[in-house]
Write a protein that binds this DNA or RNA. Sequence first.
DNA 1: CTTTGGATCGTCT
DNA 2: GACGATCCAAAGG
Length: 209
Amino acid sequence: MSAEAARLVPVPIDLLAGDPVEVAPRLLNTLLVVGERVVRIVEVEAYRGREDPASHAYRGPTRRNGTMFGPPGRLYVYFTYGMHWCANVVCGPESVPGAVLLRAAAPEGGLEAMWAARPAARRERDLCSGPAKLCQALGLTGAFDGADLLAGDLGVRLCTDGTGPPAAAGNGPRIGISVAAEHPWRWWVPGDPNVSARSAGGAPAPEPL
DNA sequence: CTTTGGATCGTCT
DNA sequence: GACGATCCAAAGG
């Protein structure tokens, strides 16, 4: 353990216990830790439950989405497109489905392991600049579904180093969905090179629920 | 830089 | 049987 890692503390559970739309922006600049690998979350999307047609939980519990209906602070990992894993932080009160998709992160530690896990990456910003890339870089698979991010029971932790979310986070529509694309439920750290496409600019345009 | 199409299979209807 | 909360290589400006 490096001296840097020792300064990290688990995120408070209160931070995760609310509605995904409130929790998501608060996760910006938190740290996801898997062994030696450390990344800083720089882009997230909120997925709600019954009221959100784009959410896996929209049609109720299934074999895949069970973790979304569990307590907050767990990792929901799902398989998609026949080859990719994506990770979410479960939030909301227990039994009320909701989660925050981790879309992109900035590599901060254990870079060698990430390069090894992502042979297709050419530049550092290719390591974690997407939900499936992030999982590949960190080695997150279905084996980690349901992991307790605060207790670190499966070796994955969500921590903070005291850096709060940006004063003015970027905000816009979610990516890659075919329904409910009108809600601006994606947030990012303005100017970070790991953020998807040209989400540049730091113009926050928060639209109330 | 942007656009396009293929890969690949678990999950739910 | 259809469709993904995606990525990548290849091709065109």
